[in-house]
Design a protein around this nucleic acid. Structure first.
Lengths: 152, 152
DNA sequence: CCGAGATACTTAACATGTTAAGTGAATGCG
DNA sequence: CGCATTCACTTAACATGTTAAGTATCTCGG
């Protein structure tokens, strides 16, 4: 069997960890986890979003998002209100405190990203992301889903 | 600020998830998580390994590994014995049952990997892994560690 | 030989990943 | 309208990620 440490999943895992290791300490200084930071960034880019939409954007599963939103709301970093047209839906938005926190973390985050880009090379970074996107695309609609064996 | 959904961490996260989504259902049929499978595969390639060495190979943190080894041992998939020369060290090896389980899962796993390779393209896969390795290397020795600001 | 420090784990505590089940509200069909 | 179904979340339960603290053992200088 192939040496699993050279398998694609392990390559992706190690690469991502190498990248995230750069960000975590700074986020931690501000009491944020990687996931919480993703949510704040996603919310900062829009007015408000439904929970399901936010889950898709921040690439989090519903249950994780539910817990995190509960905690972020308790810390007054986000705000929620139920949609008037549909009582099931909840509109989430970033709060004033959330915006301030973002502003205090963003510069460091950008600096780290710039350092990574410089070390790896901007061109190669672009190529890498291109390939990652293609990989994702080539596997879209394969396994896992609830598709009733709809493969031709 | 850059659209975070196009950031390198998100690209890596989505790509890895797209890949792992292919494997998880089959592993689950056999009552294995992704991490447990990594450990069994790592152990199958060697006679025995110390816990620390195994953590490095399977890319798991010590505390996670401790818990998983406890569970795998309870399921009789691995065996442990303390090293004679150093009572602190524990030698871990895969058991007969572990080998049998590996044998029953490996074919499906290989088939899935082959399907991914075929969809994405063997050459591109090689290039991608090459780039991921370079990314990892270019960030080696940067942040996170306990280095006392040893930057030039 | 002995005690301070280093090592190799293990435990603890809290956050998230993952699947299944639960809850309340909206929809659609007879 | 009535009610089964679907939908948008939320809870629950268990496994892992992550950092800090704990435990037993080993090493080494004095």
């Amino acid at each position: 069997m192939r040496d699993f440490s050279r398998s694609l999943p392990m390559s992706l895992l190690r690469a991502r960890e190498a990248v995230m290791r750069q960000f975590r300490p700074k986020l931690r200084e501000h009491g944020l986890t990687e996931q919480q930071w993703r949510i704040l960034r996603a919310l900062a880019a829009i007015e408000a979003a439904e929970v399901t939409e936010l889950a898709r954007t921040a690439f989090l599963l519903g249950p994780s998002l539910s817990r995190i939103l509960r905690d972020l709301e308790a810390r007054n970093l986000i705000e929620r209100r139920t949609a008037k047209s549909d009582q099931r839906r909840s509109m989430v938005s970033i709060s004033k405190d959330g915006v301030k926190l973002m502003a205090s973390v963003a510069p460091s985050s950008e600096a780290i990203y710039a350092e990574i880009t410089q070390r790896f090379g901007a061109r190669k970074l672009g190529e890498l992301q291109e390939m990652l996107g293609e990989l994702e695309q080539s596997l879209a609609g394969l396994g896992a889903g609830d598709e009733a064996s709809a493969e031709e």
